[in-house]
């Protein structure tokens, strides 16, 4: 009797469409068609505008790919926005002080690696919840970013740097798109196809069972935080390259857009299931909504209200469909 019922339940579940998994693609298509139809005359569908969306989204996407691992491991990283700001400054300062292009890259990425390591060590070795650790480092790092130059921006004159990191184009293709694709492809294969990716998801799905399976869950937590810090630093350098300067305001509030993109993409907030492709689509969707609302002529305050509503609607619909 019991086995019979469970069989039927099993059948229903496997037959029904996995809504949460594909929610983001459906929502993306709906929003895209909506804007394409209503804003066609305003030039939403022009190549130029579509490339603009990608330029505006690429940096968030890169952070979101790393955040997919963090949330997949049932952790969170609130410090990404502030790391981006500090990395843009350390990178610019290193180049200003004559350490050259390579020095700038090392200083920028190094900032992210070090802060990621500190986050990861506090979370894995002292067992402090990641929410608290990264809330703390977020405040410290954003304070440090303001302090380091007394809130003054630092110019970047190296044109090779600005070309590679953000403002260049290869033919018609913005280099930001190249960065985004490279990071997304690496992230996708790392998550789906390597032992590290599988262990990360096992840790997020059931940390205890992962430990009982011989997985070093402390190291998993450490590495996802290092990855997130490093990608946040890369994001900061891309901001710097685009704007030819390092500024403490870069990345402000990005952590929320990044987390929204990951969750919208179908990654479980409680860890265990994650998708890099979904994350990138989620980030593109947020960028597309931003862009569409601007073209519609909404001001920033109205944009925020609508954006928030769409995010809640998409996630709620995905959940509801899943329950049914």
């Amino acid at each position: 009797m019991l086995s019979k019922t469970s069989e039927i339940v099993g059948k229903q579940k496997s037959l029904s469409f996995d809504w949460r998994k594909y929610m983001v693609y459906i929502a993306f298509a709906v929003v895209f068609v909506f804007f394409a139809a209503t804003l066609y005359d305003d030039g939403f569908l022009t190549t130029n505008n579509l490339l603009n969306i990608i330029r505006q989204t690429a940096i968030i996407s890169i952070m979101a790919v790393a955040m997919t691992f963090v949330i997949g491991a049932a952790q969170i990283d609130l410090s990404v926005g502030s790391i981006a700001a500090l990395a843009s400054l350390t990178c610019a300062l290193a180049m200003e002080s004559g350490f050259g292009l390579l020095g700038g890259i090392v200083a920028g990425l190094g900032t992210g690696v070090v802060i990621g390591l500190i986050n990861g060590l506090l979370i894995s070795r002292l067992a402090i919840p990641s929410f608290l650790v990264t809330l703390g480092t977020m405040i410290i790092v954003s304070g440090a970013a303001m302090w380091i130059t007394n809130t003054a921006p630092v110019p970047i004159r190296d044109t090779t740097f600005t070309f590679i990191f953000g403002s260049g184009n290869i033919g018609p293709v913005p280099i930001l798109l190249v960065w985004m694709l490279v990071i997304a492809v690496i992230g996708h294969y790392l998550l789906r196809k390597t032992g590290y990716g599988r262990r990360t998801l096992a840790t997020g799905g059931n940390e205890n069972a992962a430990r009982f399976s011989g997985i070093n869950v402390s190291n998993i937590k450490l590495w996802v935080m290092v990855g997130s810090g490093t990608m946040a630093a890369l994001a900061g350098m891309l901001y710097a390259g685009r704007m030819s300067s390092g500024r403490y305001t870069f990345g402000e509030g990005d952590e929320m857009s990044v987390i929204a993109a990951v969750i919208l993409g179908g990654t479980s907030l409680f860890g265990g299931t994650a998708t890099v492709v979904g994350t990138v689509i989620g980030a593109l969707m947020i960028g597309m909504i931003n862009n569409g609302l601007i073209i519609m002529g909404l001001d920033v305050s109205q944009q925020n209200v609508v954006k928030g509503l769409i995010i809640i609607l998409a996630v709620a619909f995905g959940k509801k469909a899943l329950k049914r």
Binding site: G195, R198, L201, N206, I215, S268
Partner: peptide, 23 residues
């Protein structure tokens, strides 16, 4: 709580102990 990741597939649960050998 200790044996399985219930959200993961049968396959992923069986293979989790030998991921480093399945390369």
């Amino acid at each position: 709580t200790q044996g399985l990741v219930l959200d993961h597939s049968v396959k992923d649960n069986i293979l989790v102990t030998i991921l480093s050998k399945l390369r």
